[in-house]
Nucleic acid binder design. Structure first.
Lengths: 141, 141
DNA sequence: TATTGTTATACTCTATAACTATA
DNA sequence: TATAGTTATAGAGTATAACAATA
């Protein structure tokens, strides 16, 4: 059996690495993290209400209103009123949003994808891919 | 040989997970990420100038000035003028900063350490620990 | 003149509180 | 009255620009 992991130390180093990575990402990417995240989610999962998006992205509904307004201003998403409930606004990707997202992916989403592709060996990429679901679980709940 | 990793997709999912994790961390921790990072670094590596800290944490010197001023306001660090260069200000942990840091660690640094300890199996903790150096390398350069 | 650090100011992202509209 | 969303405002965190002090 492998030696036990010091979870406190692990968390501490993870937090440090996360902070630096996010600062680098913010400097490199065209879209704020949450906006990018919302675009990707709409692409993968289809139309969503603002409240749903807020819950999924773990921001307040008021914050999501602003995020959606910004994306709408860029022409990347559209609102469609829910026919069954006049209060709800469904958010969908526009064609331009779809294109922008695809472009972004095709260009490897900038710095991070480049770093993953260039600085990590195939074996290390595999290791990171295996560990990623753990990060996603930690982020989920 | 294992199948090749889609680095674009990997980067995309990693970015998503990072965004959510950082939002959760920001909500859970007593110190902003960078302040916490600076305290930990001073503890591990000893006195550092403001310019050095800025470079290491990848923020602007002006931002580090503010961060150090906040930490000084809380009594967690002290400035000492460098006897060999009157321009430089060396930043050192105070006893209280040391205590605060130790406390924080002892309490598992809050949410993240708890999540790592509770939500991940020992095997998964090991996997995350193995992948962590990769994240640190990505954050480094 | 180059380097270290500070001050002043502004921008980005998200939060809280109060409000409107629909159910 | 409860729910979905918006508007207004504030706060944290970091950036850029202009400046002061020392080398």
């Amino acid at each position: 059996m492998a030696s036990a992991v010091d979870t406190t130390l692990l968390a501490s180093r993870l937090r440090l690495a996360l902070g630096q990575l996010v600062r680098r990402l913010r400097a490199e990417h065209r879209f704020p993290l949450t906006q990018s995240s919302v675009l990707g989610r709409l692409d993968r999962e289809g139309a969503r209400s603002i409240g749903d998006l807020a819950a999924l992205e773990r921001v307040r509904p008021q914050s999501m209103t602003q995020i959606v307004a910004d994306l709408e201003g860029c022409g990347l998403i559209e609102r469609r009123s829910d026919p069954s409930d006049g209060r709800r606004a469904l958010v969908v990707l526009t064609e331009r949003g779809q294109q922008t997202l695809t472009e972004d992916r095709r260009h490897r989403e900038g710095w991070l994808a480049h770093a993953v592709a260039e600085d990590l060996s195939p074996r290390e990429q595999r290791l990171l891919a295996d560990a990623l679901p753990l990060l996603e679980r930690l982020a989920e709940d």
